[in-house]
Design a protein around this nucleic acid. Structure first.
Ligand SMILES: [Mn+2]
Ligand SMILES: [Mn+2]
Ligand SMILES: [Zn+2]
Ligand SMILES: [Zn+2]
Lengths: 135, 135
DNA sequence: TTTTCACTTTAGAATTATTATAAACTAGAA
DNA sequence: TTCTAGTTTATAATAATTCTAAAGTGAAAA
C-alpha cells in the first residue's frame, strides 16, 4: 500500500492526515497480510515501534473512524476485548485460544451445503464461520 | 425439568441448594425452550419475577458455576456484554441485531461441504456458525 | 506575515461490565 | 442446639472503553 492510499483512507474516513493518524494508518495498512488486533495490542506495538507516544484516546478515535468508514472490521472473539481486522472482505476465521490468534479463511474455502431459512420476515445478512482450534 | 433435576444441577456444580441458587436455577432451567441471556437481563427478569432481590454478585457466581460445570454455555455476540445459553449442545445461531435476540439452529440444520484443514500442528475443536439477520 | 479558528491531541475523569473482598448470615452435620 | 464451612451481600477494585475539556496545530484569511 502506497502513501497516497494512506492519505485516501484517512480522507475517506473524514480525518485530516495528522502525524499521529498517519502513523497509525501506516502501521495498520502498509502490510502484506491481514492484521488482527485489539486497541491494547495496537497501542503496545505502536509504542514499541515509534518515537512519539500516541494517546490511547487518539488510537480509539482513529480506529473507530476507520471502522465506521469500512476500512476496518470487527471480529467477535471470546473475552472482553474488541478485536479489529484489516481484512474487510467477507471471510471467516480460525481461532487459536492458546495464543489468542486469529487466522483468516477465505470465503471461498468454506462451502455451506445446507442452511436454514431465516425466521419470520427476516433475511440473512451474512454468515460468519468461526473455527476454534486445539492442539 | 423437575425439581430433582434442579438440585442435581446445583450439586453437580458444587453448589449447595440455597434459596437464591434454587431460584436462579429454576428460572434458567425450568423452561421448554433454550434461553439466551446476559447477566444484566437475567438480573432484570429475576428482580421482576421474584419477591426477594438477589445480589448481582450471587448471580454472577451462580452463572459462572453453571458454566464451569457445563450447564450453561457462552455465545459470542457483538458488544461488550457476555451472553449465556441454556443450550449446551453443539449448535449454531441466528442473530437479530435489531432486537439483540439469539435464535438456536440445530447442528444438523447446517451442513458444511468444504472446510480448510487446520494450520500447523493444530486440530479443529469445533465450528460455530453465526448468521446475522436483517429485515 | 500574523491572526484566526476549526479541528486535534491529550490526560484524566466517567462509565460499564465484571471480579474481588470481607463482614454478616445460614444450612446442615455433629 | 451448637458449630462451622460455605454463602450472600454491599461495596470496592479492576479493566475496557468513552467522554470531557483544556491546550496544541496548521492551513487559510486578513
Ligand atoms: Mn468479544
Ligand atoms: Mn462479545
Ligand atoms: Zn480476518
Ligand atoms: Zn443457543
Amino acid at each position: 500500500m502506497k502513501k497516497t492510499d494512506i492519505l485516501k483512507k484517512l480522507r475517506s474516513s473524514g480525518l485530516r492526515p495528522t502525524k499521529q493518524r498517519v502513523e497509525i494508518a501506516k502501521f495498520l495498512f502498509e502490510r502484506e497480510k491481514t492484521f488482527h488486533f485489539t486497541v491494547e495490542s495496537l497501542n503496545r506495538l505502536l509504542t514499541k515501534k515509534s518515537v512519539s507516544k500516541i494517546a490511547l484516546a487518539t488510537i480509539y478515535n482513529t480506529v473507530h473512524a476507520f471502522k465506521t468508514a469500512g476500512h476496518l472490521s470487527e471480529v467477535e472473539v471470546r473475552g472482553n476485548k474488541t478485536y479489529f481486522d484489516t481484512n474487510v472482505s467477507n471471510h471467516h476465521h480460525f481461532y487459536d485460544s492458546e495464543t489468542s490468534e486469529l487466522i483468516d479463511i477465505d470465503a471461498s474455502d468454506i462451502v455451506i451445503q445446507k442452511i436454514p431459512k431465516a425466521p419470520n420476515g427476516k433475511k440473512i445478512k451474512n454468515v460468519e464461520v468461526f473455527i476454534n482450534l486445539k492442539n
